[in-house]
Amino acid sequence: MLEAKLDAASQLKKIVEAIRDMLGECNIECNETGLALQSLDKSHIVLVSLLLGSDGFSEYRCDRGVTLGLNINSLATVLRCANNDDILTLRSEDRANELILTFEDSKADRISEFNLRLMDIDQEYLAIPETEYAATVVMSAAVLQRTLRDLSALSEAVTIEIDKEGIRFSAEGDLGKGSTHFKPCVDMENAENSINITLSEPVSLSFNLQYFSNITKASSLSSTVTLQMTAGMPAQIEYKLPSGHVRYYFAPKIED
């Protein structure tokens, strides 16, 4: 059985809000190391991989593997009934067909309980190959989100070029074209505004900006984002969590 407690419901609420628009029905695999979710988005262009390590919970117990088959939007709907600073407990018996969520306020004089019906979902699992990425960029999550949002005014696609000079985001559409270039830099005051580039060889890939804007909804989860790219392969975009991560594998657009 699974019993997992978070000191603040907001920790789970904001993660589910960040991924709910991309996903539908998915399995959350729970075991002694924590909760893991891997699911293709509806377009099959992005694979979302979420890991919530057991040490991120104030109490965690999962003696045998439990699979929570649910619709992520139903989970988001139920989580909206929790206040951000409520103590949140997830409970599910082995082979149960429901997930019990309880929300307690810190003075413990109010407790809500919701039972979310679980489903049997046979979802396609993709094997994520170990990839040596030619380029790794660590930058501010908010700056990436803002840069891509600006370029989405010009086009539905962005080209990202990384070389030793820096990282350039560019887009071209009917009304014209635009680009933003960032040099590697270290910001001593705000480390998150640093641009750190590790490069084994230059790389340039193009991506759909609509899906990218869904991905950067995770900017609320982490102050920095790690972008990894290599020619002809999906990009890996990672937002680190206090004990885990939200990772996206994003298929590029290819010159036909």
Binding site: I45, L126, A127
Partner: peptide
């Protein structure tokens, strides 16, 4: 025009 390809082209289902 760039062609969008799906992840299935890169990652095979296990």
């Amino acid at each position: 025009e760039n062609l969008q390809i799906s992840l299935g082209e890169f990652f095979d289902s296990s």
